[in-house]
Design a protein around this nucleic acid. Structure first.
Ligand code: FES
Ligand code: FES
Lengths: 144, 144
DNA sequence: TTTATTTCGGACAATTTTATCCTATTTTAT
DNA sequence: ATAAAATAGGATAAAATTGTCCGAAATAAA
């Protein structure tokens, strides 16, 4: 469904959000340990998240990755997926035709569109704050 | 969403179904042209479909790929996806945890599960006959 | 100002997916 | 029997994704 990079990106974002509530910056090493991902690869993904304005970074001693506490609620899963995997999951044809086209649809179009749109709605309506709070309460987990 | 192999596999299956209604066998070359896919790669995927009992093949002169006319209605998209991409799309964790686990869910679990289950239902309830008939009527297309 | 720390970014490597090619095997028609 | 036609399958190659490494640049503390 999502690329590994995107999965790591989402898990990392949630962990950063969680810590930003406490005013703590976190390092790629700490993030990778907490979400069980390869450190250097995760660092690359963090760079992309910074470029896309989803997290911010502070270089140098006592630096690390953080998020504006008041923006956490505004950041949706869709923002992260879009930043890393692009919009093909929202717009692409399920059978791989060059683009999804209502006027010349593939045989799966009508049925696929319903699912694809529901995925889109789900990602656009799910924010990082809610996800982070569930973890804080011990209801959900970032690794296993 | 699906791998290229799976997209080609579904498009190929629909085209074979379409021709099997007319009692025509089709070659990898003809299939690849009709669904706009690389011929040799498509041939590999056809082998997998044969092994998984989705289409049958006849070697030698006047051979080719075909489907039992009366089974076309019984073959669901899910059968093809399962044969080529496996069941991770149905069962896997959306955030890439080693498995989806209700008892230790990832933060996306509750919302992801709804979409994933809907995709599963869609694939399990869509059969090749309906897809092939839409093409025959000129309502949908296998290439563009 | 120096030093320690930390992200940034480019180069590189490994793995997986996608794609090609060639030979063997099977089958039908002559 | 022989030849022609067609799928099966292994070896190989190209491309994309995933993953690693290291030096450069930036920052804060001493
Ligand atoms: S054309 Fe294939 S999903 Fe819309
Ligand atoms: S645990 Fe992640 S989707 Fe179920």
């Amino acid at each position: 469904m999502f690329s590994k990079a995107c999965e790591y990106g989402i898990r990392a974002s949630i962990f950063i959000a969680l810590n930003s509530f406490e005013g703590r910056r976190v390092s790629p090493k700490e993030i990778a340990e907490e979400i069980d991902s390869p450190t250097a690869f995760t660092a690359k993904i963090l760079q992309a998240l910074v470029r896309n304005n989803i997290v911010s970074s502070v270089k140098g001693a006592y630096g690390g990755f953080e998020m504006d506490k008041h923006r956490i609620k505004e950041i949706k899963l869709a923002d992260i997926v879009d930043a890393i995997d692009g919009d093909s999951i929202y717009k692409g044809c399920g059978l791989g035709l060059h683009a999804c086209d209502e006027d010349r649809p593939c045989p799966m179009h009508d049925k696929f569109k319903v699912v694809r749109d529901e995925l889109k709605t789900m990602l656009e309506s799910t924010n990082l704050e809610d996800l982070a709070l569930d973890i804080k309460q011990g209801d959900t987990f970032l690794r296993r």
